[in-house]
Design a protein around this nucleic acid. Sequence first.
DNA 1: AAGACGTGGAG
DNA 2: TCTCCAAGTCT
Length: 367
Amino acid sequence: MKTSPAPTTGRALAKELLDWYDRHHRDLPWRISPPMAARGVRPDPYHIWLSEVMLQQTTVQAVKAYFAKFVTRWPTVDALAAAPSEDVMAAWAGLGYYARARNLKKCAEAVASLHGGRFPDTEDGLRSLPGIGDYTAAAVAAIAFNRPAAVMDGNVERVISRLYAVDVPLPGSKPAMKARVAELTPSDRPGDFAQAMMDLGATICTPRRPACALCPFRRDCRALEGDDPERFPVKAAKKEKPVRLGAAFVAVDLDGNVLLRRRVETGLLGGMTEVPTTDWNSRKDGETGTSAAPFAAEWKACGTVTHVFTHFELRLSIYRFHGPAPNDVRIHGWWEDVANLDAQALPTVMKKAISQAIPEAFPIERG
DNA sequence: AAGACGTGGAG
DNA sequence: TCTCCAAGTCT
């Protein structure tokens, strides 16, 4: 039988965590580490904002290369604001959730034109910008501007739900948990506290097999006391993914150009580039045929591509055409040199479709 | 307020 | 193979 943990004040918990962070923080490209911060070095709000948007529902590992690419190409928010949208979308291609890229551009333009190139330094000011929600507003306010904002992301939800053994399922428990975070957040180093909570969730208080023996909260954690930390956070059950079917048409002309189109600005893969496809629906496989092709020709079936999106699974039948480019008025879009496909705003599912039809199109990415 | 919205890595 | 999920936001 375990004894109850000694009652620990929020202030003491915060100190435990910050001490842990000083020794075990991760070094990340956009982060000013505690030793540097102690010398008065401050983070670049542009870097913090850019990284936070990229990190929404995305792993640190995936973000690193994109972050480096963006800050090299667009070193300031003004530079990003001045960039063509197509360039930004192409640079974002592969990272997913493309509304983030559209809003990134809009936000940069707003900061450049409405705020003279400087980010607002309050939660409310940040929250009003495109693509900045509760989490990102609090994170940028705390990390970039040292405001005592309560930062709660998936990591913090996990840490808090375990620390207090929260039985109410997410997302219903969110407001109560955010109140807990607000209690704990110190006025002294709120940015480091937020980053420490997230590092703790990412490296110690992990979804599976948490390393509780190494946790600065191990003496205070109600979930550990109950002996089953993995039970938290409690979440609502998720639905199963429907399957949708469609066909994609990869046309290559005699000069080695591929027919591409731009998708509409909103919705799935909005504003990104694609090869012509049918609608994606639940009709039986093979029913589509080539009647929906962008032009009448000898389309050759060359297999299928499966791609899993967040809320459905897509099975695309791939068709290939090679021959003279038809002069067909129904074709909207453009013919792009195969050698130039890497510079296009092609989402992963479209790269898969093109690779299936013409394997030499993306030689480096073939595995 | 519940569903739309991508992708790739880990176990 | 398959399930989960990673620093959420918008409508």
